[in-house]
Amino acid sequence: MKELILLLLSTIFVNNFVFARFLGTCPYMGVSRKIADSIGMGLAVIFVLLMAAVSSWFIQYFILNPLHIEYLQTIVFILVIAALVQFVEMVIMKTSPALYKALGIYLPLISTNCIILAVAILNIRENYNLIKTVVFTVGAGLGFTLALILMSSIRERLEIADIPKPLEGEPIAFIIAGLIAIAFFGFSGMM
């Protein structure tokens, strides 16, 4: 149990997916302008991540490994993720229009989010069992959401700040991300 809690905390803070591993930087820069959008995107990512990671875990250990076609991992995983995102979109649209309205616009963006494929592959590379896979995946999603929320709250303030012209928009966002990443280094002492 202690090991699992440690894994969860280290995935969220010490090895934060955005600030320490550079995964999911594109949507991170694109979406993180408003806090409400960040929360929506974060929830959608956690949801898809969990489904993708668990199903790719089963595919690896029950299809790819027994058939000795591990080298097809990349192709199979990306197709599963793309299909899954489409499927989730359709199911949510039919069953819960309210949820679709909240998450819908983020779903197409997610299939090209490298976090999803990265978590699926990392789970296999680190030889995690199913429970650890779930914990690691939730940690990754929470860490991504935390990064999005932190960034968007700062960017909402930046809108009214007076910054040099060439730095406006993305450049200043990157520099802020760098400063947040320095702050996140404080967490590595925790372990």
């Binding site: 320490a20 450049p171 520099i175 991300a177 760098g178 400063l179 320095i182 280094f185």
Partner: peptide, 12 residues
């Protein structure tokens, strides 16, 4: 990692 973010920001 922070160095990467700051470098690309300044370069941009």
């Amino acid at each position: 990692p922070p160095g990467a973010f700051i470098t690309i920001g300044l370069l941009m």
